[in-house]
Design a protein around this nucleic acid. Structure first.
Lengths: 120, 120
DNA sequence: GACATAACTTACATTTTTGATAGTACCTTA
DNA sequence: TAAGGTACTATCAAAAATGTAAGTTATGTC
């Protein structure tokens, strides 16, 4: 996360692929280890940092911060800071963020089916 | 790829998440850097190793092999070896593999829309 | 003045993924 | 006998992602 060297072959490969395949472009945006869980929760409405931290098992504050920053950079979520004490920050999906819903729903269904088939 | 330490925190986190979120489970299967491109091509029908190598820009034989092996392990593709010379190996999506189509299509559409919005 | 709280940062370590390069086995054709 | 095609493997190195643990900041409360 965050430190992609723009001189690396890996970066170059991703760039080329993203240009040619929009599905890879999408995957690179929502492909972080915790991105999908975060988005899933946010589909139900905005949440605070601490709430996300609570409902997502095992994520560290560091990783949560990193993923939220990336999602914000990619315009998937917005970040709203309240001038209160103690601090309060709310995260919410953007319009295009909410449009991830059908993808997430389908992935969930597919995942369930795949699990089921593999358990037979 | 391939060498996940089952004692690592990362492994544990993935396991727990996959159990709770089928969409994360799905993402872990199709989330490799090249998996989606491979699947996209295979949606059009079976292909040989060398054909995939040709149409996918910049992928190395090593990475192609690794990804194909993983997809095979996960029952997304089948591998058929012909007893010919020169060697001929064909890869084809399984039934559940073909069922990725709607996901891929939607990710592609979403990706395009996202790109468009971000360019404005 | 010590302590708590929410939302972070920072520095460092480990794990995981990807890349570069060279080599292998097998058979066929020149 | 040598060269060439196909589908790989093996080794080593680099880059990228994730995890651990300890701060930090700003302000209210006891």
């Amino acid at each position: 996360m965050s430190k992609i060297k723009i001189t690396s072959t890996n970066f170059e490969n991703k760039k080329v692929l993203e240009e040619e395949c929009s599905e890879v472009y999408a995957a690179n945006i929502i492909g972080g280890q915790w991105s999908l869980v975060i988005c899933s929760w946010l589909l139900q409405g905005k949440m605070r940092f601490s709430e996300l931290n609570k409902v997502i098992p095992n994520i560290t504050e560091r990783m949560l911060t990193l993923q939220l920053r990336k999602l914000e950079q990619d315009n998937i979520i917005t970040r709203k800071v309240y001038a209160e004490f103690p601090p309060k920050v709310e995260y919410e999906l953007t319009e295009i963020g909410y449009e991830l819903r059908p993808i997430i729903v389908q992935m969930e269904q597919w995942g369930k089916r795949h699990k089921y088939l593999n358990s037979k």
